[in-house]
Design a protein around this nucleic acid. Structure first.
Lengths: 246, 246
DNA sequence: GCTGGGAGAGGCTTA
DNA sequence: TAAGCCTTTCCCAGC
C-alpha cells in the first residue's frame, strides 16, 4: 500500500475515532518517562477511539510500546511517521513505517460495553427467593426490608436466629466492600442490640480484602455464576471460612 | 463471512502461530480468578503466537477480557465459539461470535524484537569522549581504567578533584542499580581512601529507587536520548539533586 | 516451576 | 485534576 494512501486512511480513521489497525515494517521510538527504540520489524499498530495507541508484536498480551490519550498525527517524508504526543507528562512516541502491508479501520459502537456479572434482576430474584445456597436455614427478611436496603445489602436471619448481613458484589470484592460491610454491621448491631454475622457475597475477593475480612471476623461466600449458561443462574458457593460465630 | 470459514481460518492461524485479528458481533464470558460476562457487541479478538488472547473494545489501551498462554480451540454450533482454556489456575474464556465482519491472520517474524536504548557503542564513545554534559569539569579516567570497568561503570574526577563513580543504565534505573552503585562506591572509597561521589546515569529512575538513592546520598543524572535522531546522540541531562558533596 | 518486586504499570474512585 | 488504591494486574528476574 502506498504510504500516502496509508497516511490519509489513518488520519481519517483517527478523526472519526474508529478502531484502526495498521500492519507493516516500522521502527519505533519512545521518549518520556523512559526512553526506548525498537529496531525495524514487522508490527501492528492499534489505534482506538479514545486515543489509545499501541504497538503490538506477535507475543505478549499488551503492547510493547504505547501511549494513552495522546494527540495523534501523521506526516510523510521518506517514511510514514505516525506520532503520538502528550503533555503532562511530556511524552512522545513515533512509529516510522517504511511499508504498510495492511491497513483498515472499523467504526465501532459508541456505547460503553456493559460488563455484567450475572443479571442484576436475576440475582435479586434468586437471592430473594433463596439464600440457602449460602448456608442451610438462612432466610432473607421480608421484601419491605429488602427493598429499603436496596439491591446489594440483604438482612437475613440464620437457623439460630442470628441476624446476618449479606453484602453482594457482582464484581470481585475489594477492600472497600469489606469496609462497607463492616460499617453496615456496626449499624445493625447497634439497632438490633445483638451480635450479627456479616457475609460478603461476590464472585471472588482480592487478597487484601480477604485479609481485612478475616481481621474483622467476617465471612466470604463465593457467588458462582454458571456463565456457560446465558441465563446466568446462580449455581452454588464455595465453602465458607471459619468465623467467630461458627 | 461464513462462520464455518471463520472457524477454519482461526484454527489455521492458531496452529501456525500467526497474529490473528477477528472483528465481529460477539458476547464474552470469562470465569477463573473472577467471573464476568460481556453482553453482545462488536469487538475485536486478537490472538497472538504465544497464545495471548484478548478481547478489545474501541477504548482502553488493554484488552477488556483476556487470557495468557492459553489453549485455544474453536467450535461451531449456532455461534462460532472461540474458547481459551488454561489450567493452574483453572480459567476459561469463551467468545461467542454470531457474525464475523473481518478476519485475517498475519505471519510475523519469529525473532524477538530488540529494544534498544541507544546504541551501546555510541553511548560508550560519547561518554568516554565527554562527560561534561553531566556537569562541568567532570572528566573520565584514562581508557585503561575505563575498559577494565567495562561499559556501565565509569570512574571520573570532578572539577574539585573528587572521585566520581558513574553507573550507567540504558533502561530506567531500578532499586538494584542503586544498590550496585552503592556497593561499588564503598569499594572505591576503601581503595582510594577518600570520599567519593556516585552518580546514577539513566533515562529515568523509579520512585523506590529514587528514595533509596536519596538515603544513600547519591545523585541521579538523566540520560536524555535524542531519539528523533536515529543516531541516538546524547543531548543533555536534567538538573541533579543536591547531595552531601555539593 | 514458583515467587517476589517493579512498571513508561493501567484504570477506577474519591477528594 | 490529583492522589491513593487495587488489579483476572503483566512481566521479568531470581531461586
Amino acid at each position: 500500500m502506498h504510504l500516502e494512501e496509508a497516511k490519509q486512511l489513518i488520519e481519517s480513521a483517527v478523526s472519526r475515532r474508529e478502531l484502526c489497525i495498521a500492519i507493516g515494517g516500522c521502527s519505533v521510538e519512545y521518549f518520556g518517562r523512559a526512553a526506548s527504540k525498537l529496531a525495524h520489524g514487522k508490527r501492528m499498530l492499534l489505534i482506538k477511539g479514545d486515543g489509545s495507541f499501541g504497538i503490538h508484536q506477535n507475543r505478549k498480551l499488551n503492547a510493547v510500546n504505547y501511549m494513552i490519550g495522546a494527540q495523534i498525527s501523521c506526516s510523510l517524508d521518506k517514511h510514514l511517521l505516525v506520532q503520538a504526543l502528550k503533555t503532562k507528562p511530556k511524552e512522545s512516541m513515533k512509529v516510522f513505517f517504511d511499508s504498510v502491508e495492511f491497513l483498515q479501520s472499523f467504526p465501532m459502537e459508541e456505547k460503553e460495553d456493559l460488563r455484567l456479572f450475572g443479571s442484576e434482576k436475576e440475582l435479586s430474584d434468586t437471592l430473594m427467593n433463596d439464600l440457602s445456597f449460602i448456608e442451610e436455614g438462612l432466610v432473607p427478611m421480608n421484601r419491605e426490608e429488602w427493598m429499603r436496603r436496596g439491591f446489594a445489602d440483604i438482612v437475613a436471619r440464620d437457623s439460630k436466629g442470628c441476624n446476618v448481613v449479606v453484602e453482594v458484589k457482582r464484581r470481585q470484592a475489594d477492600y472497600h466492600a469489606v469496609q462497607q460491610l463492616e460499617r453496615y454491621m456496626r449499624q445493625i448491631e447497634n439497632r438490633k442490640g445483638a451480635k450479627a454475622r456479616g457475609i460478603l457475597l461476590a464472585p471472588s475477593i482480592g487478597d487484601n480484602a480477604r485479609k481485612l475480612l478475616e481481621q474483622y471476623g467476617l465471612e466470604f461466600a463465593r457467588l458462582d455464576f454458571e456463565i456457560s449458561n446465558p441465563a446466568a443462574k446462580i449455581k452454588g458457593v464455595e465453602k465458607k471460612q471459619k468465623t467467630l460465630f461458627g
